[in-house]
Design a protein around this nucleic acid. Structure first.
Lengths: 161, 161
DNA sequence: AAACTTTATCGAAAAATTTTCGAAAAATTA
DNA sequence: TAATTTTTCGAAAATTTTTCGATAAAGTTT
């Protein structure tokens, strides 16, 4: 269930700041929003409990840690009943860094990070294509990540209209 | 230029821990890796200077902050010379949260986060499709983000083979 | 190989932050 | 309005980050 109702204006302003920069200190947020540090802390605890905040991830330049090839992979299944089993096997391939269940051309849509083209070839040919239930795949290679950002939380308030 | 050579084993082990959980304290990393807190700090500063670490982002459950629809958008351009202008205009649409320059079926590939289907319709019809140089688009709606994780830095070392 | 230079680490002190918690204030309910 | 619950503040305690000099390690030059 989705209940954005539980978030008030201060919650959103805290998140709007942290979404830009997750390393911003609670004390700094407190200064900017004119509340106490304790308030920021208790609200973040609550947002974590609610599952609104899942955690924080380090934003790496993947090319600089050796993953020079990023690709998207559209996956066609033989039968949609294979879905759960295919998902389970894709989860065991560390190069698959995200997976979506989609409508449209593909049944599943994955994002891959590989060290080089040879590595990508191996992952596709030896791992993904070998999964039972995968009919065929379509690869989009990312030549450049032009940008990557989070949603805007400041502007529009999440209200059930 | 990509020079993963500059990263040694301790760098990678620090990153491997922080990639799992960017909120882990440097002092805790120091304990686990048997180095001093000062070392973790100076190495992270260096990794930031090198651009390996770009920062940290809060990991939100988008549905719980009111963005219930996530979609991928394959974009075909009339001419590839329109690319820069189209990118500039996509950057001004906050609902476009990431953009890749791709090979394969599409010229550009975007990820969108919208509040509801009506909102998505507006973004597609009133904003994206109106951009000069965009021939047509293909939408993949994500029904579920099955998982989302970072690369594995512990296992394989980034070595130019 | 010795002397020199450079760089990285440690360890501890200082500065800043997080976390906790009781009292006060605010909001909600009866 | 009184009672109850929830939230906030403010300050203390615990922890962490950041700085920095001394030391050690690594790399250069002679």
């Amino acid at each position: 269930m989705t209940r954005p109702h539980e978030l008030d204006d201060i919650d959103r302003r805290i998140l709007a700041l942290l979404v830009q920069n997750a390393t911003m200190a609670y004390s700094e947020i407190a200064r900017q929003l004119h509340v106490s540090g304790g308030t920021v802390h208790s609200r973040m605890s609550r947002l974590e409990d609610l599952g609104v905040v899942r955690g924080a991830t380090l934003d790496l330049d993947l090319t600089k840690v050796g993953f020079t090839i990023q690709a998207f992979l559209g996956i066609y299944l033989l039968k949609s009943s294979y879905c759960d089993a295919v998902i389970a096997q894709l989860r065991d391939i560390p190069e698959v860094i995200s997976l979506h269940f989609t409508t449209g051309s593909y049944n599943l849509f994955a994002r891959l990070a590989c060290r080089d083209t040879q590595h990508l070839r191996n992952v596709l040919h030896d791992l993904v294509q070998q999964i039972e239930g995968v009919e065929r795949t379509e690869t989009l290679i990312s030549l450049e990540e032009v940008f990557n950002r989070s949603v805007r939380l400041d502007e529009t308030a999440p209200v059930a209209s």
